[in-house]
Amino acid sequence: MVMMLEQFGRWVLNLVSEMGRMLIFVLSAFAWLMRPPLRVAQIVKQVHFIGYKSMFVVVLTAAFTGMVLALQGYYTLRKFGSEGLLGSAVALSMIRELGPVLAALMVTARAGSAMTAEIGIMRITEQIDALDTMAVNPLQYLIAPKLVAGLIGVPLLVAIFDVVGIYGGHLVGVELLGVNAGSYWNAIESAVEWKDVYGGILKSVSFGLIVSWICTYKGFYTKMSAEGLGTATTEAVVLSSVLILIWDYFLTSVLL
């Protein structure tokens, strides 16, 4: 019993100190961002990196998510004779929930893991130490641009996800199942409020921060060993996915 308590205590202590380290990491990176020089070229490069890595999977998952939503929604709504509401069902689930969450998960899997691996390799091959010796702060040069890129890139990808998903729903609902096209778009227009869009943007911005924060942090503190890099990448993907889902629940309960 005492041993169990002791172990639990140690676990909690480790957790708290790790969380503290993560907080200091992200705060100092943003503090370094405020100091000149502002690395615009690095930021643009990183936004491109996130977009380039994730665009294909985002479009693919968005299309199929929209299509399956339309399919499910159609058969449910038909029971009540309200197929006309299909558009709003698809659009609201997309904009409020699935767009931000699924896009962020896809970004984690593609760009986030690549980020962790890239920074981890730089740690293991002493490139981060080399930055230090040249009096260039790695948080400013390496981490801050990636954090900003996450904040910009993920919302853009979410916007694409939403649009592609709604067209996917249109494809199945209207073209395949014969819902009236006018009523599909009208339902969207009358049901979606600005509040929903803002909520979606807020979610995608915060998910963007979670992905880039966790993935750069795990890479930056990669252990100097052969397994170190693999462990770091796995942990980054798992932790960032879990945090996205937990944070999503909190935000939703506040926003509703």
Partner: peptide, 19 residues
């Protein structure tokens, strides 16, 4: 520490070139 480091340069054992 940064100020002190400005007076140094180091060649790392693994070269540590930026990939």
């Amino acid at each position: 520490l940064n100020e002190i480091r400005k007076r140094f340069a180091m060649l790392f054992q693994g070269a540590a070139l930026f990939d």
